[in-house]
Simulated scan of single mutants.
Amino acid sequence: MKLKKYLFMLIMAALAVVLAACGGGEKESDTTAPASSDEASSGESRTFKIAHVVQESHVWNATAIKFGEELEKLSDGRLKVQIFPASQLGAEADMVQQIETGAVDFGFMTNAYMSTREDSLNAWFMPYLFNNLDEAVAMRDSEEAKQMLDTLSSQGLLGLDFMFAGNRHVLMKDGFAKTPEDLKGKKIRIIGSPSMQSYWEKVGAGPTAMPLSEVYTSLQTGVIDGIDIDLDALVTEKYYENAKYLTLTNQTTFPTVIVMSQAIYDQLPAEDQEIVKQAMKTAVDWGVQEAVAREKANLETLKEAGVEVLETIDTAPFQAVSDEVKKEFSEKSEIVKSFIETVESK
Rank of each mutant, 00 (worst) to 15 (best):
M1P: 15
L3Y: 14
L3S: 14
K5G: 04
F8K: 11
M12H: 06
A13T: 15
A14Q: 06
A21R: 05
C22H: 06
G24M: 11
G25Y: 15
G25E: 13
D30F: 04
D30V: 14
P34T: 13
A35C: 13
A40S: 15
A40P: 10
S42L: 06
S42W: 11
S42N: 08
E44S: 12
S45I: 13
T47N: 04
Q55I: 09
Q55E: 14
H58R: 05
N61W: 07
T63N: 01
A64W: 00
L79D: 05
Q82F: 06
P85K: 06
S87A: 08
S87K: 03
L89F: 02
G107E: 01
F108M: 01
A112K: 01
S115N: 02
R117V: 03
R117F: 00
M126P: 05
L129E: 15
A136M: 04
A136Q: 08
V137K: 09
D141N: 14
A145D: 04
D150T: 12
T151F: 10
S153L: 10
L158R: 13
G159N: 04
N167E: 09
K173M: 07
D174C: 15
I190M: 00
S193N: 06
E201L: 06
T208M: 04
L212W: 10
S213F: 03
I224C: 12
D228H: 03
D230G: 00
L231D: 07
L234F: 07
L234Q: 11
L246T: 11
T247S: 12
Q251A: 02
T252R: 04
T253D: 03
T256P: 00
D266P: 11
E271R: 07
Q273H: 11
T282S: 15
A283Q: 11
V284Q: 10
V288S: 15
E290K: 14
E295R: 03
L302H: 07
K303H: 10
E304R: 10
G306M: 10
V307Y: 00
L310P: 12
T315A: 04
P317V: 06
F318M: 05
D323T: 07
E334D: 09
V336H: 04
E341N: 15
